[in-house]
Amino acid sequence: MELTRKILEGDVRAAARLMTMIENGASEARAALKSLYAHTGSGYIIGITGPPGSGKSTLTDHLTDELRKRRKTVGIVAVDPTSPFSGGAILADRIRMQRHSLDADVFIRSMATRGHLGGLARATNDVVDVMDAAGKEVILIETVGVGQDEVEVVGTAHTCVVVSVPGLGDEVQAIKAGVLEIGDVFVVNKADREGANRTATELEMMLHMAPDTGGWLPKVYKTVATKGEGIAKLVDAIFAHKAFLDERDLRKKKGRERSERAFMALLQETLRARTVERFKRNGSMKEMIERVADRELDPYTAVEEILDKIGL
Protein backbone atom coordinates (compact mmCIF):
# COMPACT_ATOMS: atom_id res chain seq x y z
CA MET A 1 0.00 0.00 0.00
CA GLU A 2 1.35 3.33 -1.12
CA LEU A 3 0.54 5.32 2.03
CA THR A 4 1.95 2.69 4.37
CA ARG A 5 5.12 2.36 2.37
CA LYS A 6 5.70 6.10 2.46
CA ILE A 7 5.11 6.28 6.18
CA LEU A 8 7.52 3.47 6.85
CA GLU A 9 10.08 5.32 4.75
CA GLY A 10 9.64 8.32 7.01
CA ASP A 11 7.53 10.53 4.76
CA VAL A 12 6.18 13.23 7.09
CA ARG A 13 3.40 14.33 4.79
CA ALA A 14 2.05 10.80 4.44
CA ALA A 15 2.10 10.20 8.19
CA ALA A 16 0.39 13.52 8.82
CA ARG A 17 -2.25 12.68 6.23
CA LEU A 18 -2.99 9.36 7.85
CA MET A 19 -3.34 11.04 11.24
CA THR A 20 -5.98 13.33 9.79
CA MET A 21 -7.82 10.39 8.29
CA ILE A 22 -7.73 8.64 11.64
CA GLU A 23 -9.10 11.70 13.40
CA ASN A 24 -11.82 12.06 10.81
CA GLY A 25 -12.71 8.39 11.00
CA ALA A 26 -12.14 7.94 7.30
CA SER A 27 -12.42 4.38 6.08
CA GLU A 28 -9.01 4.43 4.35
CA ALA A 29 -7.43 4.95 7.73
CA ARG A 30 -8.55 1.55 8.86
CA ALA A 31 -6.80 -0.17 5.99
CA ALA A 32 -3.57 1.74 6.58
CA LEU A 33 -3.60 1.03 10.30
CA LYS A 34 -4.06 -2.65 9.55
CA SER A 35 -0.92 -2.79 7.49
CA LEU A 36 1.08 -0.56 9.86
CA TYR A 37 0.18 -2.58 12.92
CA ALA A 38 3.01 -5.05 12.50
CA HIS A 39 5.50 -2.18 12.58
CA THR A 40 4.34 -0.77 15.89
CA GLY A 41 5.30 -1.70 19.42
CA SER A 42 8.88 -0.51 19.63
CA GLY A 43 8.33 3.17 20.53
CA TYR A 44 8.57 4.11 24.19
CA ILE A 45 5.52 6.10 25.20
CA ILE A 46 5.67 8.77 27.88
CA GLY A 47 2.57 10.55 29.14
CA ILE A 48 2.84 14.07 30.53
CA THR A 49 -0.15 15.11 32.56
CA GLY A 50 -1.01 17.76 35.10
CA PRO A 51 -3.21 20.78 35.74
CA PRO A 52 -3.68 23.54 33.16
CA GLY A 53 -0.75 25.89 32.93
CA SER A 54 1.56 23.74 35.05
CA GLY A 55 4.19 23.76 32.33
CA LYS A 56 3.50 20.50 30.47
CA SER A 57 4.27 21.95 27.07
CA THR A 58 7.40 23.70 28.27
CA LEU A 59 8.56 20.47 29.88
CA THR A 60 7.77 18.52 26.74
CA ASP A 61 9.86 21.00 24.78
CA HIS A 62 12.85 20.58 27.08
CA LEU A 63 12.42 16.83 27.40
CA THR A 64 12.59 16.70 23.62
CA ASP A 65 15.75 18.75 23.71
CA GLU A 66 17.34 16.36 26.17
CA LEU A 67 16.15 13.27 24.29
CA ARG A 68 17.62 14.64 21.08
CA LYS A 69 20.92 15.15 22.87
CA ARG A 70 20.72 11.47 23.73
CA ARG A 71 20.13 10.77 20.05
CA LYS A 72 16.57 9.58 20.35
CA THR A 73 14.03 10.41 17.69
CA VAL A 74 10.92 11.95 19.17
CA GLY A 75 7.23 12.08 18.40
CA ILE A 76 4.96 14.47 20.30
CA VAL A 77 1.20 14.30 20.51
CA ALA A 78 -0.25 17.35 22.25
CA VAL A 79 -3.92 17.29 23.14
CA ASP A 80 -6.05 20.38 23.79
CA PRO A 81 -9.77 20.53 24.51
CA THR A 82 -12.44 21.06 21.91
CA SER A 83 -14.93 23.83 22.66
CA PRO A 84 -18.23 22.21 23.56
CA PHE A 85 -20.07 25.20 22.09
CA SER A 86 -18.64 25.40 18.60
CA GLY A 87 -16.83 22.10 18.13
CA GLY A 88 -13.75 24.13 17.26
CA ALA A 89 -10.49 24.27 19.17
CA ILE A 90 -7.41 26.36 19.59
CA LEU A 91 -4.39 24.09 19.72
CA ALA A 92 -1.60 26.12 21.26
CA ASP A 93 0.75 23.64 22.94
CA ARG A 94 2.90 23.67 19.87
CA ILE A 95 3.97 27.27 20.49
CA ARG A 96 6.33 26.05 23.20
CA MET A 97 7.88 23.43 20.96
CA GLN A 98 8.28 25.30 17.71
CA ARG A 99 12.06 25.35 17.89
CA HIS A 100 11.97 21.62 17.13
CA SER A 101 9.84 22.00 14.07
CA LEU A 102 12.85 22.12 11.78
CA ASP A 103 14.35 18.97 13.26
CA ALA A 104 13.55 16.09 10.89
CA ASP A 105 13.75 13.66 13.80
CA VAL A 106 10.98 15.35 15.76
CA PHE A 107 7.33 15.07 14.72
CA ILE A 108 4.82 17.24 16.56
CA ARG A 109 1.11 16.77 16.16
CA SER A 110 -1.61 18.76 17.89
CA MET A 111 -4.96 17.12 18.51
CA ALA A 112 -8.30 18.32 19.77
CA THR A 113 -10.33 16.10 22.09
CA ARG A 114 -13.39 16.37 19.83
CA GLY A 115 -15.66 15.69 22.73
CA HIS A 116 -13.74 12.74 24.09
CA LEU A 117 -13.26 12.76 27.85
CA GLY A 118 -10.34 11.36 29.75
CA GLY A 119 -7.62 13.83 28.82
CA LEU A 120 -6.85 12.41 25.39
CA ALA A 121 -8.56 12.42 22.02
CA ARG A 122 -10.30 9.32 20.79
CA ALA A 123 -7.71 8.97 18.05
CA THR A 124 -4.63 9.57 20.23
CA ASN A 125 -3.75 5.89 20.50
CA ASP A 126 -3.81 5.38 16.77
CA VAL A 127 -1.84 8.55 16.10
CA VAL A 128 0.79 7.35 18.57
CA ASP A 129 0.91 4.09 16.62
CA VAL A 130 1.55 5.97 13.40
CA MET A 131 4.46 7.83 15.03
CA ASP A 132 5.72 4.53 16.34
CA ALA A 133 5.53 2.91 12.91
CA ALA A 134 7.21 5.97 11.40
CA GLY A 135 10.19 5.18 13.56
CA LYS A 136 9.93 7.59 16.46
CA GLU A 137 11.80 5.99 19.34
CA VAL A 138 10.22 8.02 22.10
CA ILE A 139 6.70 9.37 21.93
CA LEU A 140 5.58 12.06 24.33
CA ILE A 141 1.88 12.60 24.91
CA GLU A 142 0.84 15.88 26.49
CA THR A 143 -2.68 15.51 27.84
CA VAL A 144 -5.16 18.33 28.24
CA GLY A 145 -4.85 20.11 31.57
CA VAL A 146 -6.39 17.49 33.81
CA GLY A 147 -8.66 17.29 36.76
CA GLN A 148 -9.37 14.16 38.66
CA ASP A 149 -10.94 11.91 36.10
CA GLU A 150 -8.78 12.61 33.13
CA VAL A 151 -6.28 9.83 33.56
CA GLU A 152 -6.80 7.85 30.39
CA VAL A 153 -3.17 8.43 29.44
CA VAL A 154 -2.18 5.77 31.94
CA GLY A 155 -3.60 3.18 29.58
CA THR A 156 -1.51 4.41 26.69
CA ALA A 157 1.82 5.43 28.19
CA HIS A 158 4.58 3.22 29.51
CA THR A 159 5.73 5.92 31.90
CA CYS A 160 3.37 8.53 33.25
CA VAL A 161 4.86 11.83 34.35
CA VAL A 162 2.56 13.82 36.61
CA VAL A 163 3.32 17.54 36.79
CA SER A 164 2.35 19.85 39.60
CA VAL A 165 3.47 23.31 40.68
CA PRO A 166 4.16 24.94 44.03
CA GLY A 167 0.84 25.52 45.74
CA LEU A 168 0.78 29.21 46.50
CA GLY A 169 -2.19 31.02 47.92
CA ASP A 170 -4.61 31.45 45.10
CA GLU A 171 -3.23 28.72 42.93
CA VAL A 172 -3.25 25.64 45.06
CA GLN A 173 -3.04 22.93 42.50
CA ALA A 174 -2.68 20.00 44.78
CA ILE A 175 -2.57 16.66 43.15
CA LYS A 176 -5.84 14.82 43.37
CA ALA A 177 -5.98 11.27 44.55
CA GLY A 178 -6.84 9.85 41.14
CA VAL A 179 -3.87 11.50 39.55
CA LEU A 180 -1.58 10.38 42.35
CA GLU A 181 -2.26 6.76 41.50
CA ILE A 182 -1.29 6.98 37.86
CA GLY A 183 2.10 8.66 38.28
CA ASP A 184 5.35 6.77 37.77
CA VAL A 185 7.41 9.92 38.03
CA PHE A 186 6.33 13.15 39.73
CA VAL A 187 7.50 16.63 38.86
CA VAL A 188 7.18 19.82 40.80
CA ASN A 189 7.70 22.32 38.01
CA LYS A 190 8.21 26.06 38.47
CA ALA A 191 10.65 25.22 41.22
CA ASP A 192 11.90 28.79 40.89
CA ARG A 193 8.74 29.80 42.71
CA GLU A 194 8.31 29.98 46.40
CA GLY A 195 6.98 26.86 48.10
CA ALA A 196 8.49 24.31 45.71
CA ASN A 197 10.28 22.42 48.45
CA ARG A 198 7.17 22.25 50.56
CA THR A 199 5.07 20.99 47.69
CA ALA A 200 7.69 18.35 46.90
CA THR A 201 7.79 17.19 50.51
CA GLU A 202 4.03 17.02 50.73
CA LEU A 203 3.91 14.98 47.57
CA GLU A 204 6.54 12.59 48.86
CA MET A 205 4.56 12.09 52.01
CA MET A 206 1.42 11.35 50.05
CA LEU A 207 3.32 8.87 47.90
CA HIS A 208 4.65 7.07 50.95
CA MET A 209 1.15 6.56 52.19
CA ALA A 210 -0.07 5.22 48.87
CA PRO A 211 -0.90 1.51 48.88
CA ASP A 212 0.84 -1.20 46.88
CA THR A 213 3.01 0.25 44.15
CA GLY A 214 4.07 -3.04 42.61
CA GLY A 215 7.71 -2.64 43.51
CA TRP A 216 8.25 0.73 41.86
CA LEU A 217 8.65 3.69 44.18
CA PRO A 218 7.70 6.89 42.38
CA LYS A 219 9.97 9.81 43.21
CA VAL A 220 9.48 13.54 43.06
CA TYR A 221 11.70 15.75 40.88
CA LYS A 222 11.91 19.51 40.84
CA THR A 223 12.26 21.32 37.54
CA VAL A 224 12.34 24.82 36.15
CA ALA A 225 11.07 24.02 32.70
CA THR A 226 11.57 27.52 31.33
CA LYS A 227 15.29 27.29 32.06
CA GLY A 228 15.70 23.60 31.34
CA GLU A 229 16.76 22.96 34.94
CA GLY A 230 16.30 19.45 36.30
CA ILE A 231 15.41 18.04 32.90
CA ALA A 232 18.36 15.68 32.52
CA LYS A 233 17.56 14.13 35.90
CA LEU A 234 13.95 13.78 34.90
CA VAL A 235 14.92 11.94 31.73
CA ASP A 236 17.17 9.69 33.81
CA ALA A 237 14.22 8.94 36.07
CA ILE A 238 11.99 8.12 33.13
CA PHE A 239 14.61 5.76 31.73
CA ALA A 240 15.06 4.20 35.15
CA HIS A 241 11.37 3.43 35.12
CA LYS A 242 11.71 2.00 31.64
CA ALA A 243 14.55 -0.22 32.85
CA PHE A 244 12.41 -1.32 35.76
CA LEU A 245 9.58 -2.28 33.41
CA ASP A 246 11.90 -4.09 31.05
CA GLU A 247 13.63 -6.04 33.81
CA ARG A 248 10.36 -7.50 34.95
CA ASP A 249 8.88 -7.80 31.54
CA LEU A 250 6.24 -5.33 32.64
CA ARG A 251 6.45 -3.29 29.47
CA LYS A 252 5.07 -6.24 27.56
CA LYS A 253 2.35 -6.62 30.16
CA LYS A 254 1.46 -2.93 29.82
CA GLY A 255 1.53 -3.33 26.08
CA ARG A 256 -0.82 -6.29 26.27
CA GLU A 257 -3.18 -4.36 28.48
CA ARG A 258 -3.09 -1.48 26.07
CA SER A 259 -3.76 -3.80 23.14
CA GLU A 260 -6.64 -5.36 24.99
CA ARG A 261 -8.17 -2.00 25.76
CA ALA A 262 -7.68 -0.84 22.22
CA PHE A 263 -9.22 -4.04 20.95
CA MET A 264 -12.23 -3.79 23.25
CA ALA A 265 -12.75 -0.13 22.35
CA LEU A 266 -12.52 -0.89 18.68
CA LEU A 267 -14.90 -3.80 19.02
CA GLN A 268 -17.37 -1.70 20.90
CA GLU A 269 -17.25 1.14 18.43
CA THR A 270 -17.36 -1.05 15.37
CA LEU A 271 -20.28 -3.03 16.74
CA ARG A 272 -22.16 0.08 17.59
CA ALA A 273 -21.40 1.71 14.28
CA ARG A 274 -22.43 -1.34 12.27
CA THR A 275 -25.58 -1.84 14.26
CA VAL A 276 -26.58 1.77 13.86
CA GLU A 277 -25.80 1.58 10.18
CA ARG A 278 -27.87 -1.61 9.72
CA PHE A 279 -30.95 -0.27 11.45
CA LYS A 280 -30.68 3.25 10.19
CA ARG A 281 -31.56 2.07 6.72
CA ASN A 282 -35.03 0.90 7.64
CA GLY A 283 -35.57 3.45 10.39
CA SER A 284 -36.56 0.87 12.94
CA MET A 285 -34.04 1.97 15.53
CA LYS A 286 -35.28 5.52 15.57
CA GLU A 287 -38.80 4.24 16.04
CA MET A 288 -37.66 2.01 18.85
CA ILE A 289 -35.94 4.89 20.63
CA GLU A 290 -39.11 6.91 20.38
CA ARG A 291 -41.03 4.11 22.01
CA VAL A 292 -38.48 3.97 24.80
CA ALA A 293 -38.85 7.70 25.28
CA ASP A 294 -42.60 7.38 25.45
CA ARG A 295 -42.31 4.63 28.06
CA GLU A 296 -43.97 2.13 25.75
CA LEU A 297 -40.87 0.00 25.80
CA ASP A 298 -38.04 -0.32 28.34
CA PRO A 299 -34.49 0.19 27.07
CA TYR A 300 -33.31 -3.24 28.25
CA THR A 301 -35.84 -5.07 26.15
CA ALA A 302 -35.16 -2.73 23.25
CA VAL A 303 -31.44 -3.53 23.20
CA GLU A 304 -32.12 -7.25 23.52
CA GLU A 305 -34.51 -7.07 20.60
CA ILE A 306 -31.89 -5.38 18.46
CA LEU A 307 -29.21 -7.88 19.36
CA ASP A 308 -31.58 -10.75 18.68
CA LYS A 309 -32.21 -9.38 15.23
CA ILE A 310 -28.53 -9.44 14.33
CA GLY A 311 -28.08 -12.81 15.92
CA LEU A 312 -25.99 -11.90 18.97
Partner: peptide
Protein backbone atom coordinates in the same frame (compact mmCIF):
# COMPACT_ATOMS: atom_id res chain seq x y z
CA UNK B 1 -13.33 33.42 15.26
CA UNK B 2 -12.20 30.27 13.46
CA UNK B 3 -12.59 28.25 16.61
CA UNK B 4 -16.05 29.68 17.11
CA UNK B 5 -16.82 28.66 13.54
CA UNK B 6 -15.98 25.06 14.48
CA UNK B 7 -12.46 24.85 13.08
CA UNK B 8 -9.34 23.49 14.71
CA UNK B 9 -6.79 26.23 14.87
CA UNK B 10 -3.13 25.51 15.40
CA UNK B 11 -1.67 28.72 16.73
CA UNK B 12 2.12 28.85 16.54
CA UNK B 13 2.63 32.25 18.05
CA UNK B 14 5.01 35.06 17.30
CA UNK B 15 8.19 35.33 15.31
CA UNK B 16 7.99 32.29 13.14
CA UNK B 17 10.37 31.85 10.25
CA UNK B 18 8.86 30.69 6.96
CA UNK B 19 10.67 27.38 7.46
CA UNK B 20 9.03 26.79 10.84
Amino acid sequence: AFRDAGMEVIYTGLRQTPEM
